[in-house]
Amino acid sequence: ISHVFEHDPSKSKEAEDLLEYIERFNELFSRGKYEYAAIYAANCPRGILRNIETMKKFKDISRMNGKVLPLLRYFEALISTSTAVKHPFPAVMTQEAIKCALSEKRLDLVMHWVTRQRLTFSEEAGDVIFAYGEVEPHNRPKCLALAQIVYSQCGSHRKAALCLCKQGQVCGAMEYLQQFKHSPLDDYVYLLKHCPTAELIRCLTQEGNGKPASLSIGATVLSLLNTGHKEHSLWLLKEIEKEDVLEQAILNETVCTVEGWKKIADLCAEEKHEKLSQEIISILTSQEGVVEIFPDDDNAKIMEHVFL
């Protein structure tokens, strides 16, 4: 307490009152009156017991049969009084409070805290909720919606968009991202990596409303390949082949290089799609500045750039 008043000795009476308050809290705590101690701490003057140190005291107390975890009591008391006592709930403790509530299967509490805007949101807090939905599938829709709120509020927009995609709102995710960046290519690749659905792939690679596609076909296929989603990259290529627009896609490519398309052709060959592989090679060799070389000692086709 002394550090609070070290520059203002005239307030020694208030310092004494605070010390007395802390002593009363310690007495309640030592007697195992954790619920009362939590409420007492939450309403303390100057917020002197609304801190990490006090949280650790409650965290060290083991569960008692048939009773609410003392740490959860502390968080409930702090959060319910944060507005009244004008002490915003800090981000670090927000994350701990969410972890604690979810460890006790109290998603209802987290929903209440998040929707009432009682917390200080952070990406880490959103991650905790998102992860809980992954291990509790029946609560996944609620967790995605809550995590989306948290991510959006703290500015982690790509993760908010991912939550939308995983809720089946792909178009909504695209519109959401476009509010914040003119061309969020990194965010699109992030979504492809973590939610490579057919709907998302179509949305990113098709033109719409007079606007160009968000990602080129080649860039999308390579992104899927580089993030371990081979089956999705092949699916996209076969869809393009069926629509008879593969040549147009390659010739209009502005991002994926000839070497990139050669890598794609090699993948097709490896996966027993020789016809598709040969078609890509044929389109590439028809371009000015690209030749196909057949080494005498190897029948393999090698693509090389020839800079004329």
Rank of each mutant, 00 (worst) to 15 (best):
R158F: 11
R46D: 10
C163E: 04
E274L: 15
V110N: 02
M111A: 13
L185Y: 03
A249G: 07
D17L: 09
H229K: 02
Q148T: 15
G172W: 10
M64Q: 13
L191H: 06
K105Y: 15
G32W: 05
I1P: 10
K166N: 11
A41C: 03
D266S: 14
K67T: 06
N209T: 12
Q169P: 13
I149S: 15
Y34N: 12
I264K: 05
G210C: 02
T83N: 13
L225A: 04
G126H: 05
Q178E: 08
H138W: 07
F294D: 15
A84E: 06
E207V: 03
S183H: 10
L276Q: 03
M111V: 10
S30P: 13
K86T: 15
L107P: 15
P90C: 04
C171T: 14
D127E: 08
E104G: 05
M55P: 14
F130Q: 00
I201R: 00
Q148P: 13
D187T: 08
L204F: 11
L200T: 00
S152Y: 14
G218R: 00
I98W: 01
L284T: 09
S103N: 09
Y40N: 07
K57Q: 07
R106K: 08
I281F: 08
A213C: 05
D60Y: 15
K142Y: 13
G155C: 04
I129G: 03
L225V: 01
E259R: 12
V170P: 06
C268G: 04
K142S: 12
Q248I: 12
H273M: 02
D108M: 05
G126T: 01
R46P: 11
K238S: 04
Y21R: 01
A145Y: 12
P90D: 06
L162K: 03
C268W: 00
C100D: 06
A213K: 00
R106W: 10
K238A: 00
F29I: 02
M111G: 13
E207T: 04
R46G: 10
E134S: 12
P141Y: 13
Q278E: 08
K263V: 03
L237H: 10
V245Y: 00
A84V: 15
C195M: 06
R140Y: 08
A265T: 05
S214R: 08
L72R: 04
L69E: 03
V255A: 10
E96Q: 11
P196S: 02
C163R: 03
H305M: 08
L72D: 09
S10T: 14
S183A: 11
A269V: 02
L162E: 09
L109I: 00
L251Y: 14
H194Q: 01
S2W: 09
A97R: 07
M93T: 09
V135T: 13
Y34K: 10
R118C: 14
D8H: 06
V114F: 02
E6A: 10
P141T: 04
L237K: 01
F294A: 14
V92N: 03
H232L: 01
H305I: 04
I250C: 02
G260M: 00
V306W: 09
A84D: 05
S82N: 10
M174H: 05
G210S: 03
L146Y: 12
M303Y: 14
E274P: 14
P196I: 00
E14Q: 15
D187W: 07
E76F: 13
R118W: 15
S282H: 11
A91M: 03
A42H: 02
E253R: 07
I280C: 13
G208W: 14
